[in-house]
Design a protein around this nucleic acid. Structure first.
Lengths: 145, 145
DNA sequence: TGCTTGCCTGGAGTGCACTCCAAGTCTCTA
DNA sequence: TAGAGACTTGGAGTGCACTCCAGGCAAGCA
Protein backbone atom coordinates (compact mmCIF):
# COMPACT_ATOMS: atom_id res chain seq x y z
CA UNK A 1 0.00 0.00 0.00
CA UNK A 2 1.44 3.40 -0.93
CA UNK A 3 1.31 6.18 1.59
CA UNK A 4 -1.04 8.10 -0.65
CA UNK A 5 -3.43 5.16 -0.83
CA UNK A 6 -3.23 4.77 2.92
CA UNK A 7 -3.98 8.44 3.39
CA UNK A 8 -7.06 8.15 1.25
CA UNK A 9 -8.28 5.14 3.09
CA UNK A 10 -7.49 6.67 6.44
CA UNK A 11 -9.32 9.86 5.69
CA UNK A 12 -12.32 8.40 3.97
CA UNK A 13 -13.42 5.87 6.53
CA UNK A 14 -15.33 8.47 8.47
CA UNK A 15 -17.89 6.11 9.89
CA UNK A 16 -19.99 3.08 9.23
CA UNK A 17 -23.21 4.99 8.69
CA UNK A 18 -22.15 7.23 5.83
CA UNK A 19 -24.85 9.24 4.10
CA UNK A 20 -23.88 9.01 0.43
CA UNK A 21 -27.08 8.68 -1.55
CA UNK A 22 -25.52 8.71 -5.00
CA UNK A 23 -22.63 6.61 -6.32
CA UNK A 24 -19.28 8.18 -7.15
CA UNK A 25 -19.52 9.82 -10.55
CA UNK A 26 -23.07 11.10 -10.04
CA UNK A 27 -22.17 12.65 -6.73
CA UNK A 28 -22.61 16.34 -6.96
CA UNK A 29 -24.96 17.80 -4.44
CA UNK A 30 -26.21 21.35 -4.07
CA UNK A 31 -25.81 23.05 -0.73
CA UNK A 32 -29.53 22.51 -0.15
CA UNK A 33 -29.14 18.77 -0.57
CA UNK A 34 -26.19 18.71 1.81
CA UNK A 35 -28.28 20.63 4.35
CA UNK A 36 -30.95 17.95 4.10
CA UNK A 37 -28.39 15.13 4.33
CA UNK A 38 -26.26 16.43 7.19
CA UNK A 39 -28.58 18.59 9.26
CA UNK A 40 -26.05 21.42 9.11
CA UNK A 41 -27.29 24.81 7.97
CA UNK A 42 -26.17 26.34 4.68
CA UNK A 43 -24.66 29.16 6.73
CA UNK A 44 -22.56 26.68 8.64
CA UNK A 45 -21.45 24.86 5.50
CA UNK A 46 -20.26 28.11 3.91
CA UNK A 47 -18.61 29.11 7.17
CA UNK A 48 -16.77 25.76 7.40
CA UNK A 49 -15.35 26.42 3.95
CA UNK A 50 -14.41 30.00 4.77
CA UNK A 51 -12.42 29.04 7.87
CA UNK A 52 -10.66 26.18 6.10
CA UNK A 53 -12.45 23.34 7.84
CA UNK A 54 -13.31 22.14 4.32
CA UNK A 55 -11.05 22.54 1.37
CA UNK A 56 -12.59 24.61 -1.41
CA UNK A 57 -15.75 22.94 -2.64
CA UNK A 58 -16.30 22.55 -6.40
CA UNK A 59 -18.50 25.11 -8.14
CA UNK A 60 -21.00 24.74 -10.96
CA UNK A 61 -20.69 26.88 -14.11
CA UNK A 62 -22.55 29.69 -12.34
CA UNK A 63 -20.57 29.63 -9.11
CA UNK A 64 -22.86 27.50 -6.94
CA UNK A 65 -21.29 24.90 -4.65
CA UNK A 66 -21.36 21.27 -5.73
CA UNK A 67 -20.42 18.83 -2.97
CA UNK A 68 -19.27 15.26 -3.66
CA UNK A 69 -19.22 12.02 -1.66
CA UNK A 70 -15.78 12.79 -0.24
CA UNK A 71 -17.16 16.06 1.10
CA UNK A 72 -20.01 14.18 2.77
CA UNK A 73 -17.61 11.70 4.32
CA UNK A 74 -15.48 14.51 5.63
CA UNK A 75 -18.52 16.34 7.03
CA UNK A 76 -19.56 13.17 8.77
CA UNK A 77 -16.18 12.80 10.42
CA UNK A 78 -16.16 16.48 11.38
CA UNK A 79 -19.59 15.96 12.90
CA UNK A 80 -18.20 13.19 15.09
CA UNK A 81 -15.28 15.31 16.24
CA UNK A 82 -17.65 18.17 16.96
CA UNK A 83 -20.00 15.88 18.89
CA UNK A 84 -17.07 14.82 21.03
CA UNK A 85 -16.16 18.40 21.82
CA UNK A 86 -13.11 18.98 19.67
CA UNK A 87 -12.64 22.75 19.22
CA UNK A 88 -13.16 23.96 15.67
CA UNK A 89 -9.61 25.34 15.68
CA UNK A 90 -8.24 21.82 16.21
CA UNK A 91 -10.41 20.42 13.44
CA UNK A 92 -9.11 23.15 11.14
CA UNK A 93 -5.58 22.19 12.15
CA UNK A 94 -6.30 18.58 11.25
CA UNK A 95 -7.75 19.64 7.90
CA UNK A 96 -4.65 21.70 7.19
CA UNK A 97 -2.38 18.77 8.00
CA UNK A 98 -4.44 16.66 5.63
CA UNK A 99 -3.95 19.17 2.82
CA UNK A 100 -0.24 19.37 3.48
CA UNK A 101 0.22 15.76 2.46
CA UNK A 102 1.69 12.50 3.64
CA UNK A 103 4.55 13.95 5.65
CA UNK A 104 2.05 15.05 8.32
CA UNK A 105 0.93 11.51 9.18
CA UNK A 106 2.58 11.54 12.59
CA UNK A 107 1.16 14.93 13.52
CA UNK A 108 -2.32 13.87 12.50
CA UNK A 109 -2.08 10.66 14.46
CA UNK A 110 -0.87 12.55 17.51
CA UNK A 111 -3.78 14.96 17.27
CA UNK A 112 -6.26 12.09 17.13
CA UNK A 113 -4.54 10.24 19.98
CA UNK A 114 -4.74 13.31 22.16
CA UNK A 115 -8.38 13.74 21.32
CA UNK A 116 -9.04 10.09 22.07
CA UNK A 117 -7.65 10.64 25.55
CA UNK A 118 -9.97 13.61 26.04
CA UNK A 119 -12.92 11.53 24.90
CA UNK A 120 -12.03 8.68 27.26
CA UNK A 121 -11.75 11.07 30.19
CA UNK A 122 -15.05 12.63 29.25
CA UNK A 123 -16.76 9.25 29.12
CA UNK A 124 -15.45 8.49 32.62
CA UNK A 125 -16.80 11.83 33.90
CA UNK A 126 -20.17 11.20 32.30
CA UNK A 127 -20.41 7.75 33.82
CA UNK A 128 -19.53 9.06 37.28
CA UNK A 129 -22.25 11.68 36.93
CA UNK A 130 -24.69 9.06 35.71
CA UNK A 131 -24.22 7.28 39.03
CA UNK A 132 -24.96 10.47 40.96
CA UNK A 133 -28.04 11.12 38.82
CA UNK A 134 -29.27 7.57 39.33
CA UNK A 135 -28.89 8.00 43.08
CA UNK A 136 -30.72 11.32 43.22
CA UNK A 137 -33.51 10.21 40.92
CA UNK A 138 -33.98 7.13 43.06
CA UNK A 139 -34.18 9.27 46.20
CA UNK A 140 -36.74 11.56 44.63
CA UNK A 141 -38.74 8.49 43.69
CA UNK A 142 -38.55 7.21 47.26
CA UNK A 143 -39.51 10.57 48.77
CA UNK A 144 -42.49 10.94 46.46
CA UNK A 145 -43.94 7.59 47.55
CA UNK B 1 -38.75 10.04 56.49
CA UNK B 2 -40.38 13.44 56.10
CA UNK B 3 -40.32 15.08 52.73
CA UNK B 4 -38.14 17.85 54.10
CA UNK B 5 -35.58 15.35 55.38
CA UNK B 6 -35.66 13.59 52.04
CA UNK B 7 -35.11 16.88 50.26
CA UNK B 8 -32.05 17.60 52.34
CA UNK B 9 -30.61 14.20 51.78
CA UNK B 10 -31.41 14.23 48.11
CA UNK B 11 -29.81 17.59 47.55
CA UNK B 12 -26.73 17.11 49.66
CA UNK B 13 -25.44 13.87 48.27
CA UNK B 14 -23.66 15.64 45.46
CA UNK B 15 -20.94 13.09 45.03
CA UNK B 16 -18.66 10.67 46.81
CA UNK B 17 -15.55 12.82 46.57
CA UNK B 18 -16.81 15.93 48.32
CA UNK B 19 -14.27 18.62 49.12
CA UNK B 20 -15.28 19.74 52.61
CA UNK B 21 -12.09 20.37 54.54
CA UNK B 22 -13.68 21.63 57.74
CA UNK B 23 -16.48 20.01 59.77
CA UNK B 24 -19.94 21.57 59.97
CA UNK B 25 -19.86 24.40 62.49
CA UNK B 26 -16.39 25.60 61.50
CA UNK B 27 -17.33 25.71 57.86
CA UNK B 28 -17.12 29.24 56.65
CA UNK B 29 -14.84 29.75 53.73
CA UNK B 30 -13.80 32.96 52.03
CA UNK B 31 -14.23 33.22 48.30
CA UNK B 32 -10.49 32.74 47.93
CA UNK B 33 -10.67 29.42 49.78
CA UNK B 34 -13.56 28.29 47.61
CA UNK B 35 -11.57 29.22 44.52
CA UNK B 36 -8.73 26.99 45.75
CA UNK B 37 -11.11 24.16 46.64
CA UNK B 38 -13.27 24.13 43.53
CA UNK B 39 -11.04 25.46 40.77
CA UNK B 40 -13.75 27.96 39.83
CA UNK B 41 -12.74 31.61 39.57
CA UNK B 42 -14.00 34.20 42.04
CA UNK B 43 -15.67 35.92 39.09
CA UNK B 44 -17.56 32.76 38.29
CA UNK B 45 -18.62 32.23 41.90
CA UNK B 46 -20.03 35.75 42.12
CA UNK B 47 -21.68 35.32 38.75
CA UNK B 48 -23.31 32.04 39.84
CA UNK B 49 -24.82 33.88 42.78
CA UNK B 50 -25.96 36.80 40.65
CA UNK B 51 -27.84 34.60 38.18
CA UNK B 52 -29.46 32.53 40.93
CA UNK B 53 -27.47 29.35 40.41
CA UNK B 54 -26.59 29.64 44.10
CA UNK B 55 -28.94 31.02 46.70
CA UNK B 56 -27.54 34.08 48.43
CA UNK B 57 -24.31 33.20 50.17
CA UNK B 58 -23.81 34.33 53.80
CA UNK B 59 -21.80 37.50 54.41
CA UNK B 60 -19.36 38.38 57.14
CA UNK B 61 -19.92 41.53 59.25
CA UNK B 62 -18.16 43.57 56.55
CA UNK B 63 -20.02 42.18 53.59
CA UNK B 64 -17.59 39.53 52.37
CA UNK B 65 -18.92 36.17 51.25
CA UNK B 66 -18.67 33.23 53.64
CA UNK B 67 -19.38 29.85 52.04
CA UNK B 68 -20.32 26.75 54.05
CA UNK B 69 -20.15 23.00 53.44
CA UNK B 70 -23.61 22.96 51.87
CA UNK B 71 -22.41 25.53 49.38
CA UNK B 72 -19.41 23.35 48.52
CA UNK B 73 -21.64 20.31 48.10
CA UNK B 74 -23.91 22.26 45.80
CA UNK B 75 -20.97 23.60 43.78
CA UNK B 76 -19.70 20.08 43.37
CA UNK B 77 -23.03 18.90 42.03
CA UNK B 78 -23.26 21.92 39.73
CA UNK B 79 -19.77 21.06 38.49
CA UNK B 80 -20.96 17.59 37.56
CA UNK B 81 -23.98 18.92 35.72
CA UNK B 82 -21.79 21.42 33.91
CA UNK B 83 -19.27 18.71 32.98
CA UNK B 84 -22.08 16.72 31.45
CA UNK B 85 -23.22 19.66 29.36
CA UNK B 86 -26.36 20.83 31.14
CA UNK B 87 -27.04 24.45 30.12
CA UNK B 88 -26.66 26.96 32.93
CA UNK B 89 -30.28 27.99 32.42
CA UNK B 90 -31.41 24.45 33.29
CA UNK B 91 -29.22 24.38 36.37
CA UNK B 92 -30.73 27.69 37.46
CA UNK B 93 -34.17 26.20 36.92
CA UNK B 94 -33.25 23.26 39.14
CA UNK B 95 -31.90 25.62 41.81
CA UNK B 96 -35.15 27.60 41.70
CA UNK B 97 -37.22 24.44 42.11
CA UNK B 98 -35.08 23.55 45.09
CA UNK B 99 -35.74 26.92 46.71
CA UNK B 100 -39.47 26.62 46.05
CA UNK B 101 -39.70 23.66 48.39
CA UNK B 102 -40.95 20.11 48.57
CA UNK B 103 -43.86 20.50 46.20
CA UNK B 104 -41.40 20.63 43.29
CA UNK B 105 -40.05 17.11 43.83
CA UNK B 106 -41.63 15.72 40.70
CA UNK B 107 -40.42 18.57 38.52
CA UNK B 108 -36.88 18.22 39.84
CA UNK B 109 -36.89 14.50 39.27
CA UNK B 110 -38.17 14.98 35.74
CA UNK B 111 -35.41 17.48 35.01
CA UNK B 112 -32.76 15.04 36.20
CA UNK B 113 -34.32 12.14 34.32
CA UNK B 114 -34.30 14.14 31.12
CA UNK B 115 -30.69 15.09 31.68
CA UNK B 116 -29.79 11.49 32.39
CA UNK B 117 -31.16 10.56 28.99
CA UNK B 118 -29.03 13.25 27.38
CA UNK B 119 -25.97 11.97 29.19
CA UNK B 120 -26.65 8.38 28.13
CA UNK B 121 -27.04 9.42 24.51
CA UNK B 122 -23.86 11.43 24.73
CA UNK B 123 -21.93 8.47 26.13
CA UNK B 124 -23.15 6.36 23.22
CA UNK B 125 -22.00 9.02 20.74
CA UNK B 126 -18.63 9.27 22.39
CA UNK B 127 -18.16 5.53 22.32
CA UNK B 128 -19.07 5.34 18.65
CA UNK B 129 -16.53 8.06 17.91
CA UNK B 130 -13.94 6.27 20.00
CA UNK B 131 -14.28 3.32 17.65
CA UNK B 132 -13.71 5.58 14.64
CA UNK B 133 -10.70 7.18 16.31
CA UNK B 134 -9.23 3.79 17.17
CA UNK B 135 -9.61 2.72 13.57
CA UNK B 136 -7.99 5.84 12.13
CA UNK B 137 -5.16 5.88 14.64
CA UNK B 138 -4.49 2.24 13.83
CA UNK B 139 -4.39 3.00 10.11
CA UNK B 140 -1.99 5.89 10.62
CA UNK B 141 0.21 3.57 12.62
CA UNK B 142 0.11 0.98 9.82
CA UNK B 143 0.83 3.55 7.13
CA UNK B 144 3.79 4.95 9.06
CA UNK B 145 5.47 1.55 9.31
C1' DT C 1 -42.20 40.10 -18.26
C1' DG C 2 -42.38 39.53 -13.79
C1' DC C 3 -42.19 36.41 -9.87
C1' DT C 4 -40.29 32.78 -7.12
C1' DT C 5 -36.69 29.91 -5.62
C1' DG C 6 -32.15 28.82 -4.59
C1' DC C 7 -27.96 30.29 -4.35
C1' DC C 8 -23.85 33.82 -3.81
C1' DT C 9 -20.76 37.27 -0.88
C1' DG C 10 -18.59 39.96 3.11
C1' DG C 11 -19.61 41.55 7.23
C1' DA C 12 -22.40 42.19 11.26
C1' DG C 13 -25.08 40.10 15.01
C1' DT C 14 -26.32 36.45 18.58
C1' DG C 15 -26.23 33.46 22.70
C1' DC C 16 -23.63 31.25 25.96
C1' DA C 17 -20.53 31.07 29.73
C1' DC C 18 -17.67 33.25 31.54
C1' DT C 19 -13.92 37.07 32.41
C1' DC C 20 -12.35 41.44 33.32
C1' DC C 21 -12.46 46.36 34.83
C1' DA C 22 -12.79 50.49 37.72
C1' DA C 23 -13.40 52.27 41.86
C1' DG C 24 -14.06 51.44 46.36
C1' DT C 25 -13.88 49.06 51.40
C1' DC C 26 -11.73 46.54 55.07
C1' DT C 27 -8.01 44.31 57.69
C1' DC C 28 -3.46 43.34 58.68
C1' DT C 29 1.48 44.12 59.07
C1' DA C 30 5.74 47.28 59.19
C1' DT D 1 0.45 56.05 59.23
C1' DA D 2 1.21 53.89 55.05
C1' DG D 3 1.01 50.25 52.04
C1' DA D 4 -0.31 45.58 50.62
C1' DG D 5 -3.66 42.29 49.86
C1' DA D 6 -8.22 40.28 49.75
C1' DC D 7 -12.48 41.42 49.07
C1' DT D 8 -16.93 44.23 47.21
C1' DT D 9 -20.14 46.03 43.19
C1' DG D 10 -22.40 46.86 38.43
C1' DG D 11 -21.40 46.82 34.03
C1' DA D 12 -18.54 46.06 30.04
C1' DG D 13 -15.67 42.87 27.34
C1' DT D 14 -14.17 38.22 25.40
C1' DG D 15 -14.04 33.87 22.72
C1' DC D 16 -16.45 30.41 20.61
C1' DA D 17 -19.51 28.58 17.21
C1' DC D 18 -22.43 29.72 14.74
C1' DT D 19 -26.41 32.68 12.55
C1' DC D 20 -28.27 36.26 10.09
C1' DC D 21 -28.48 40.21 6.88
C1' DA D 22 -28.34 43.09 2.73
C1' DG D 23 -27.88 43.17 -1.78
C1' DG D 24 -27.30 40.64 -5.81
C1' DC D 25 -27.33 36.77 -9.54
C1' DA D 26 -29.25 32.88 -12.37
C1' DA D 27 -32.74 29.53 -13.69
C1' DG D 28 -37.46 28.07 -14.15
C1' DC D 29 -42.23 28.99 -14.69
C1' DA D 30 -47.22 31.77 -15.59
Amino acid sequence: MTEAAAATEVDDCASGTAVRPRPDGQDNYTIGEVVALTGLSAHTLRWYERIGLMSRVDRSHNGQRRYDNDDLRWLEFVGRLRLTGMPVADMVRYAELLREGDHTFAARQELLVRHREDVRRHIADLQATLAVLDFKIELYGGAAR
